[in-house]
């Protein structure tokens, strides 16, 4: 199971994601540098968190112009699972692969804390092992994590089942407490919280099983495809 972990200048959760994919869930991840073409044998792609290009101009916007994003768009059309976490989510939004924008948190501060998510869509490649409304204790760490869409788009997202995760309480002022969304086909998922920081018991003071299901869902999906 080949998973591409895309690395932009300033990505800083790439090594964490790589560790979890390989050492915890025994997939075969490979780093993909932003100005090289995406390898062709990938079963899934992850855009990890960090500060690509130092979050300059707007988080994710410069990385969204990288050559590799064109390749990501192509494989997204083929239905290959793509997960963007934190800055990866911001990049997916800025590149038009996912709807909405991510604004500064309403506290105006960077926020690093544990939150609880509820699963709103369990049909995606990253949530297929969850029950609907299942809770996930998981940390956030971002300055621009407030997901925003206008009311019209929000209705559409709801109608098309594109809301994947919500916070179980108000965290940063995001529209409808949205923490993660997917594209219409459901194969591209973006989320602000960090599943790679919650999938091992040693570093998760609450319960690491729910976050593990995000990766196990991918295993199930890829296994089903193969």
């Amino acid at each position: 199971m080949n998973v591409g972990v895309i690395v932009f200048p300033g990505s800083n959760c790439d090594r964490d994601m790589f560790h979890v994919l390989s050492d915890v869930f025994h997939m075969t991840p490979q780093y993909c540098w932003h100005d090289k073409p995406l390898p062709e044998n990938l079963d899934a792609v992850v855009l990890p968190g960090g500060f690509s290009y130092g979050d300059r101009l707007r988080a994710g916007v410069i990385a969204a112009h990288s050559p590799i994003i064109q390749d990501v768009k192509k494989i997204a059309e083929k239905g290959i699972p793509i997960l963007g976490v934190c800055n990866g989510f911001q990049i997916l939004v800025e590149s038009g692969l996912l709807p909405g924008v991510l604004l500064k948190n309403d506290s105006l501060n960077f926020m690093c804390e544990w939150t609880n998510l509820t699963v709103e869509n369990n049909k995606t490649p990253f949530t297929n092992k969850f029950e609907l409304n299942e809770k996930i204790p998981i940390p956030i760490a971002n300055g621009d994590g407030r997901y925003f869409v206008d009311d019209e788009t929000l209705k559409q997202l709801e109608r098309k089942n594109q809301i994947v995760f919500k916070y179980d309480q108000v965290v940063n002022g995001s529209s409808n407490q949205i923490a993660g969304v997917c594209n219409e086909d459901g194969n591209v998922v973006g989320m602000m919280p960090h599943p790679e920081r919650a999938a091992e018991p040693e570093i998760n003071p609450h319960d690491n099983k729910p976050s593990s299901l995000i990766f196990e869902s991918l295993l199930k999906k890829i296994g089903a495809n193969n």
């Binding site: 979890v20 960077f110 690093c112 570093i203």
Partner: peptide, 25 residues
């Protein structure tokens, strides 16, 4: 203060800020 610092990145932080000392694996 420490809520503004990313204290989890690197996934080594076993004991987080707010306790006596922090522990890294």
């Amino acid at each position: 203060v420490y809520g503004q610092y990313d204290h989890e990145v690197g996934i080594r932080t076993v004991v987080k800020p707010g306790y006596d000392a922090s522990v890294l694996r």
